[in-house]
């Protein structure tokens, strides 16, 4: 980078072009807004699928948005291969961290003691937890 600034202006323009133009940024911005709207749509009552589908959908959208920001706004699309040195280990670390917590903390209710289940705040809802629109709620039990 510091090298190329020393070179002639013509080359600088070519490099500038490579970093994405205003048009690219605006296109990414519009895409991000649409994607935000799409994940917000899962919250509306028009969402036709279950909560679990909504969660997967929202996570997919979040990852897409993250990729857009990283690739275009943070210019990672145009960087050399060093980018993998930083991003791949960090990604693996974060995934492993979640996966390591899952058996210990995440699945604790799978084998919860009977006492714990009895004294739970509200009876456990097996299907759709915490959905205020649904009419079959804990009272039904």
């Amino acid at each position: 980078m510091s090298h190329s600034t020393d070179v002639t202006g013509g080359h600088g323009d070519a490099e500038h072009e490579q970093h994405g133009s205003i048009g690219t940024y605006l296109a990414v911005f519009v895409a991000l807004c649409i994607l935000t709207g799409a994940s917000f749509f899962t919250y509306s009552s028009y969402w036709p699928f279950s909560d679990h589908v909504a969660w997967a959908f929202m996570m997919a959208i979040s990852c897409t948005k993250a990729m857009l920001v990283i690739l275009f706004f943070m210019h990672l699309k145009y960087e050399a291969n060093w980018k993998y040195v930083l991003t791949v280990p960090a990604t693996f670390m974060s995934l492993f961290l979640v996966l390591m917590l899952v058996p210990d903390v995440g699945l604790r209710m799978r084998r919860a003691s009977e006492e714990r289940l009895r004294y739970m705040a509200v009876p456990q809802v097996t299907d759709a937890p915490a959905d205020q629109h649904s009419s079959e709620q804990p009272d039904g039990h």
């Binding site: 930083l86 604790r108 919860a112």
Partner: peptide, 29 residues
């Protein structure tokens, strides 16, 4: 380099949240 440490910092927080939230017997709406 700083951002890669930040990724892990927030990944830890978000990961813990995900695990706690889905391991919780009940979560407020």
């Amino acid at each position: 380099l700083f951002l890669s440490t930040e990724i892990m910092f927030f990944a830890a927080l978000i990961g813990t949240y995900i695990v706690l939230r889905f391991g919780a017997p009940v979560w407020p709406t």
